[in-house]
Structures are given as C-alpha cells and as structure tokens.
Simulated scan of single mutants.
Amino acid sequence: MQYRQKTDAELVVLLTLNDEEAFSELYVRYKSKLQYFCFHFLKVESEACDIVQEVFIRIWESRCFINPELSFSSFLYVMARNRVLNYFKHIDVENKIKDILAKQSLEEENIESDLISTEYQDILRTAIEHLPPQRKKIFNMSRIDGMSHKEIAAILNISVYTVQEHISEALAFIRHYFAQHSDLSLGLMLLWII
C-alpha cells in the first residue's frame, strides 16, 4: 500500500537498491499504458505484450544503472519505442530473405526450404531439450501451447515476472545454441524467426 503513494523517482531509488516491491509497483503503473503504446504501432496484442515484458525484464536487469533523477516514464517509452523499431527491422530483414528465396527457382526453393525446415526443427528441438526442466516447461507452455504469461504463472503458482524471466532466458539460450550449431546463413534467418 505504501508503495502506491510513492513517486516514480522514489520507486526508482528503491529499485536501484534491488527492491522487488518497488519494481512491481512500477510494473503495475506502466504495464497497460506501455502495452497500449506498443499495440498502437504493432497492431498485434501478443507482440505488444512481449515487448512490454522485455522492457521490464531489461529494467530489472539494469536497475543499478537507472538514474532516478530522470523521468522514468520517458525512459520506459524510449525503450519500448526502440524495441518496436527493432521488431520492424527484424520483420524487414525477414521479408528481404523471403524475397531472395522467392527469386530462386521453385524446385530449388522447395528442396532448400525442406532442408532448412528439417535442420531448424532438429536444432530447435535439441536446444529446447537442453533447457533446465522448469524453463523448458514454461517455454513449451508459452510457445507450443500458446498460453499467456499470466496463465502459466497461475498454473505453476509463480509470479508473472518469473515466467517472463524464464522465457527471456530460454530465448537467449536458443539463439546462442543456434549460433553454435547451424551455419551462418541459417543462423541469421533463425534469429529473426525466434
């Protein structure tokens, strides 16, 4: 209750001191506004939610470096805007890759597509198998079963933040795994798909 009465600057000071309740209060204050902001550009609710979760994960990870004297809301919106821009850059690169593949003959494209798909699936399956059990379960619930972070948190009786952190760590591990276990062109393509 006392955290609701604090200003953003006061909460950020507490956040820099590793105060999880201060972080939770900032999350509650800005989550919906930030999702609306991202949705305005993306027009896809799940992508907007993912970006907001990534922003707050980065906030927590870099909490010691946040300047409480600067506007926290401006900081959040700049981070969200940058992530939205990166999202569109990734989409643009993916579209360019698709255009290049489309220019190849249909037969070559089908053969290459089958090989890439098979290799991608094998590497992805292996990468997921290397995740710690809880992280693997949460990742599969999110990406395979299509459950929201809130649903996963309720089922596993953990916080939404814990779910977000597991998803973020799983994606980072999978990207790293792809970089180590696939050739460069396939790895670059898959970084945008994941």
Rank of each mutant, 00 (worst) to 15 (best):
Q2R: 04
Q2G: 14
Y3C: 06
Y3Q: 02
R4K: 10
K6L: 10
T7I: 02
T7L: 05
D8A: 07
A9I: 10
E10I: 00
E10Q: 03
V12C: 04
V12R: 00
V12W: 01
V13C: 07
V13F: 08
T16R: 11
T16N: 07
D19M: 03
E20R: 08
E20G: 05
F23Y: 03
S24L: 13
E25W: 01
L26K: 00
R29C: 05
R29N: 06
K31E: 11
S32P: 00
S32C: 00
K33N: 10
Q35P: 08
Y36L: 11
Y36I: 14
H40N: 13
C49T: 12
D50A: 11
Q53R: 01
E54K: 00
V55A: 04
F56W: 03
F56P: 02
F56T: 02
I57S: 06
R58Q: 14
W60Q: 02
W60H: 04
R63H: 04
R63Q: 03
F65E: 10
F65C: 09
F65I: 07
N67P: 08
E69G: 10
E69Q: 10
L70F: 12
S73L: 08
S74K: 07
S74Q: 08
F75W: 08
L76E: 01
V78W: 00
A80G: 12
A80S: 06
R81K: 14
N82K: 09
R83V: 03
R83S: 15
R83K: 13
L85C: 09
N86T: 02
F88W: 05
F88A: 10
K89H: 14
I91W: 02
E94A: 14
E94F: 11
E94S: 13
I97E: 00
I97V: 04
I97C: 01
K98H: 10
D99I: 13
D99E: 12
D99K: 15
Q104F: 15
S105V: 09
E108N: 09
E109L: 09
E109W: 15
D114I: 14
I116C: 02
I116P: 00
T118C: 02
Y120C: 15
Q121R: 15
D122R: 10
I123M: 06
I123L: 10
I123P: 03
R125T: 15
T126H: 07
T126C: 08
I128V: 13
E129R: 13
L131C: 08
L131V: 09
P132H: 09
P133G: 02
K136R: 15
I138P: 01
I138T: 08
F139G: 06
F139P: 05
M141Y: 10
D145E: 12
G146N: 07
G146W: 01
M147H: 09
S148H: 10
K150P: 04
E151I: 02
A154Y: 11
A154F: 10
I155N: 13
I155E: 11
I158Q: 02
I158F: 11
S159Q: 06
S159M: 10
T162G: 00
T162D: 03
T162P: 00
Q164M: 12
E165L: 12
E165C: 12
H166E: 05
H166K: 04
I167G: 05
I167D: 04
S168L: 07
A172F: 06
F173V: 13
Y177L: 07
F178S: 15
S182Q: 06
S182V: 12
D183M: 15
G187C: 15
M189V: 05
L190D: 03
L191C: 08
L191Y: 04
W192M: 09
I193A: 09
